[in-house]
Amino acid sequence: MSTPDLAAGRRLLLRDFLASHLPVAGLADDQDLFESGHVTSMFALELVVFVETTYGVTVESADLELDNFRTVASILALVDRKLGG
């Protein structure tokens, strides 16, 4: 399990990214990003690139099938697992 500071840092980076890519105010951690109604067609790719380059992880097809990219909380949990934190 990652330390509170590390987790907070990762969350902040993700929320910053989402703030500039999704015109949705007050996004909740358990809110479905893809159903927020304002996802551009390029968002999925931007999100994959962001997660890989920011957290240094490699996203695999198996990760997609588990709906790990649906919410802020699930993305952070995925990153946490992949970094063995």
């Binding site: 067609s41 999925a44 790719l45 999100l47 994959v48 890989e52 996203v59 695999e60 097809s61 997609l64």
Partner: peptide, 11 residues
């Protein structure tokens, strides 16, 4: 990444 993103958009 493009293949993964496409699967995200269109499971």
């Amino acid at each position: 990444r493009g293949l993964l993103a496409d699967r995200l958009r269109r499971p």
